[in-house]
């Protein structure tokens, strides 16, 4: 994008720059639908979750806890702790949202990791890019979740296909970019130890929630 990138982009420009990333919400949306179905979620619940939460990591986290037989509270807490990063992310783009409070609240729902990253690609955050990219990802995410629940109904035992390991791989791939920072590596190592130690002695889901305390390492100077 040469000369015209200087001018103010439009929402359609946001859709356009997001198209190369479209396979990711489609494939993850389908996977979420399949896993949700396997975890005993109804198709309606899976689609409503994609439409309201619109955050892959949080959704996969709560479904993974439910699938493991974890408690309600643990399934909620695991997702809420993961979503908490949106507080920090949304603060970085707080000033670009147009309109009154309600419009800002709705617009803010289009923040996902990818739309946020695209919106800041020119060196400063641009609302039309975030909105266009976010809208495209949202539509694809919800539609492919619906498709995934249909496929999930057909597949007999997704875990026989190794879907459980595939989700471990997903979480690992999402975690690795953070490991460039020493403090994130230390906190992650502590979280792994807490999880392993508590797994034999506590109900499913609890170790994940307890591991969240490892982030308090951030209070160290």
């Amino acid at each position: 994008m040469p000369a015209e990138s200087r001018s103010t982009p439009r929402i359609l420009d946001g859709v356009r720059v997001a198209i190369p990333l479209a396979p990711s919400p489609i494939l993850f949306g389908i996977s979420f639908g399949v896993l949700a179905e396997a975890a005993g979620m109804s198709a309606a619940a899976a689609v409503v979750m994609s439409a309201s939460t619109f955050s892959g990591a949080a959704q996969f986290a709560s479904v993974s806890v439910l699938d493991a037989g974890g408690t309600l509270a643990a399934a909620i807490a695991a997702a809420v702790f993961l979503s908490a990063r949106y507080i920090a992310i949304s603060v970085t783009v707080a000033s670009i949202f147009p309109g009154g409070r309600l419009r800002r609240l709705l617009g803010a729902q289009l923040i996902v990791d990818e739309s946020w990253a695209l919106a800041g690609r020119s060196g400063r955050f641009e609302w039309p890019i975030l909105a266009g990219a976010g809208l495209l990802f949202y539509v694809l995410w919800v539609a492919s979740t619906a498709l995934g629940t249909v496929l999930g109904g057909v597949i007999d035992d997704p875990n026989a296909l190794g879907l459980d390991a595939a989700f471990a791989a997903l979480f690992l791939a999402l975690a690795v970019p953070y490991f460039r920072e020493a403090r994130a590596r230390q906190a992650a190592a502590l979280a792994a130890v807490i999880t392993l130690v508590l797994t034999p002695v506590s109900p499913a889901g609890v170790p994940i929630v307890a591991a969240a305390t490892a982030c308090l390492l951030g209070l160290r100077r």
Binding site: A57, F60, A78, A88, F171, L174, A175, R183, C215
Partner: peptide, 20 residues
């Protein structure tokens, strides 16, 4: 910095429970 650490911490805990 606490909020920044939440994502790697939770994702790592999920890798561990999902694997072991």
């Amino acid at each position: 910095s606490v909020v920044d650490l939440l994502a790697p911490v939770m994702l790592t805990a999920l890798v561990v429970t999902q694997t072991f």
